[in-house]
């Protein structure tokens, strides 16, 4: 059985590869060991080689750098054709990437170009017999489905960032008797009909809840915008992102991209703090995949406690500063 395992890797300018690429590479290397198929990474951008050294340490079979000034900023109209033009010639068996905001945008378009189905937000990927099996959440996170591909490759999958279940045993490095490196200068065959014309930045760039390993989320218990500063302080201690329930987003105390839940983002961090959040079904649907949930609520009957491992019945305004203090003591 030939075919290659292609992993799309995302970097973050100064910080190097995104954290979520760790689990992705582990999953790819595990598949590689089970199948004997090579793992090859694809990096794209204006200067994709800036992550080269870091990827080289992962011991993959090959790294493809797709380079172009046009790929400086992510734009699906440029990224999808560039990725497709290179990967189609690599006899891909599996194509995988993170279900990050970028991945969610890019992969469906790539699947259409390959004319194959894809499975998004996988929590687990295993190789069984000749095929690939994955597990993903469905029905508002209340259920999970085990799915397999029945058609011809490539099989396109995206992995939930930090999904508790993505923790795969073993080291990252696969085979690698020396990694091949290949640079491709990409020139678009035609001018796309849509394009990115501007990026409007936030004053301060914050971690996105979708990719954070820990999330500190606030609910209606919070009365003012300024109260979120308290959550930010806690988040900083935990290297967490700040999330919010819909109630506080609707009240304009938090911005829309912070919303977790059925009509917001579906997240699966290692640690989730639900602070003054009642635990409505629509909120739970978005955070049920979290590994460890801590709930603080003054109402002992709040449903959120049914989904938490640790609970404190109390006032968030009293508890949160104490948690920050306890974490500071730990540092000291």
């Amino acid at each position: 059985m030939n075919g290659r395992i292609i992993v799309f890797l995302e970097g973050k300018k100064k910080e190097g590869l995104k954290k979520s690429t760790g689990a992705l590479l582990k999953a790819a290397c595990l598949l590689s060991r089970q199948t004997g198929k090579p793992v090859e990474a694809v990096l794209m951008g204006e200067d994709p080689k800036q992550y080269g050294e870091e990827v080289l340490r992962k011991g993959l079979n090959c790294i493809h750098y797709i380079k172009s000034a046009e790929l400086k900023d992510y734009d699906v109209h440029r990224y999808a054709p560039a990725f497709y033009s290179v990967v189609k010639d690599l006899t891909p068996w599996v194509i995988m990437g993170g279900s990050t905001l970028l991945g969610k945008d890019l992969f469906p378009r790539i699947a259409a170009m390959f004319s194959v189905p894809m499975i998004s937000d996988c929590q687990k990927i295993t190789f069984e017999g000749p095929g690939l099996k994955v597990v993903k959440a469905c029905f508002y996170g209340k259920k999970q489905a085990e799915l397999s591909f029945t058609g011809n490759p490539p099989y396109i999958v995206t992995l939930v960032p930090n999904s508790a279940e993505v923790e795969i045993e073993g080291q990252e490095a696969a085979v690698a008797e020396g990694t091949k490196e290949r640079e491709i200068e990409y020139i678009a065959a035609e001018e796309p009909k849509g394009r990115l014309v501007e990026i409007i930045m936030k004053e301060t760039e914050k971690q996105d809840v979708l990719e954070a390993e820990a999330i500190v989320a606030g609910g209606r218990a919070l009365k003012e915008k300024a109260d979120f500063l308290l959550l930010e302080e806690l988040a900083e201690k935990l290297d967490a992102a700040v999330g919010a329930s819909r109630a506080v987003v609707d009240a304009d105390l938090a911005s829309p991209e912070m919303q977790v839940g059925q009509s917001g983002k579906t997240v699966a961090p290692k640690l989730y703090f639900a602070l003054g959040i009642s635990g409505a079904a629509q909120h739970i649907a978005g955070m049920r995949g979290s590994k460890v949930v801590v709930a603080v609520n003054k109402d002992k009957q709040a449903p959120v406690f049914n989904y938490a491992q640790y609970g404190i019945v109390g006032d968030v305004y009293q508890i949160v500063p104490e948690v920050i203090r306890a974490l500071t003591d730990l540092d000291g």
């Binding site: 992510y74 734009d75 905001l101 990026i199 936030k202 914050k206 971690q207 996105d208």
Partner: peptide, 11 residues
């Protein structure tokens, strides 16, 4: 809506 609340304008 892009990462971390950034906004991408597509034409």
């Amino acid at each position: 809506l892009a990462e971390g609340g950034k906004i991408e304008v597509i034409r």
